[in-house]
Nucleic acid binder design. Structure first.
Length: 305
DNA sequence: AACCAGGCTGCGC
DNA sequence: GCGCAGCATGGT
């Protein structure tokens, strides 16, 4: 192997208040996610980088994240892209101390700063992927949602083969735009999910929606409206996507079954809370509302809560 | 077998 | 703007 190829790795210094274990745990959660593999505290994943697809592996060592490239060329441009991708993927750039101070002010939530210490928002930097995934997840349980995603990705995504297994890239809109609802029905997509997803792929393929377009919208309400004008995207999906893909600080996916369960389990709301009741509680967490939603989702996996 | 799941659309008010 | 039925599909 040539020296230049041996150098196909780099490190990223980890921030204060960071737990790689917590982040990996959330990414895994015992669900069958077809877009990454987590094993022995290592994450392996394929991404579409500007110069070529990359298969990378991430592990922690000496207060740094080590990124090694298993497949694909680590050009300068690809390295810049991957560095930023990882920073976005596990939200390395947000200092959490202010958030933890607010959590500690609420006796019902203070335990989170220890129990989930260092957990960072796991993002979906690819807007198209975030939208499709949220449509898949509407109104069905997560086990089934991950199964649907796997079928879609294996049928329309790009495979990267490696000695430790096959890794998939999420389907690009241009490919998915050629599918018909009849193609997706046998994979157990409902007719509506199939139509919504294909419509979305066409929107992206025709350049009528992109992350850039959304980023250029002047404010959060314009971004919500741009998203909710899409067939199949309601208030839940729009907020979910702004959290996961756009790092929006104060988004609440109203109606989210998991969120409401978590709020009930913490004694914060009664069943079937109104939007106003949820806003009243979240008001104190301005600047960290999205993060709080994320930590409440995390809490659902704790038996006590 | 009923009720639930990281909802949405279309309708009537 | 708000509430509600109807929908679609597997898990528990």
């Amino acid at each position: 192997m040539k020296e230049s190829e041996q150098a196909a790795c780099f490190t990223i210094k980890t921030p204060e208040i960071f737990s790689f274990t917590e982040c990996l745990w959330f990414l895994d959660r015992n669900y069958d996610d077809c877009l990454h593999q987590i094993e022995a505290q290592q994450l392996t994943k394929a991404v579409n980088a500007p110069d070529s697809p990359l298969l990378f592996r991430l592990h922690e060592e000496n207060e740094a994240l080590c990124v090694s490239i298993l497949k694909g060329r680590l050009t300068i441009q690809n390295e810049l892209f991957l560095k930023q991708y990882i920073r976005d993927y596990i939200d390395l750039d947000t200092p959490l101390d202010a958030y933890y101070r607010i959590l500690n002010n609420d006796p019902r939530l203070a335990y989170m700063t220890e129990t989930f210490k260092g957990l960072r928002m796991t993002g979906l930097p690819d807007l198209f992927e975030a939208l499709v995934w949220s449509i898949i997840g509407q109104q069905i349980n997560l086990t089934f949602a991950y199964r649907l995603k796997r079928r879609l990705v294996e049928a329309y995504g790009t495979k990267m083969q490696h000695s430790c297994g096959d890794f998939y890239l999420f389907p690009i809109p241009e490919i998915l735009a050629t599918a018909t609802p009849e193609d997706l029905r046998p994979m157990q997509f409902s007719g509506n999910k199939a139509r919504y997803i294909i419509g979305l792929a066409r929107l992206f393929a025709e350049g009528r929606l992109s992350k850039e377009i959304l980023q250029h919208a002047p404010n959060i309400n314009d971004r919500l409206k741009l998203l909710m004008d899409i067939k199949g995207v309601g208030i839940w999906t729009a907020n979910y996507v702004l959290i996961k893909s756009m790092k929006e600080k104060d988004c609440i996916p109203y109606g989210d079954a998991g969120l409401i369960n978590a709020l009930k389990q913490h004694g914060i709301v009664e069943s079937r809370p109104t939007q106003q009741q949820i806003d009243d509680f979240f008001g104190r967490f301005s600047g960290w509302q999205s993060y709080l939603v994320f930590y409440l989702w995390r809490s659902l996996a704790v038996p006590k809560y």
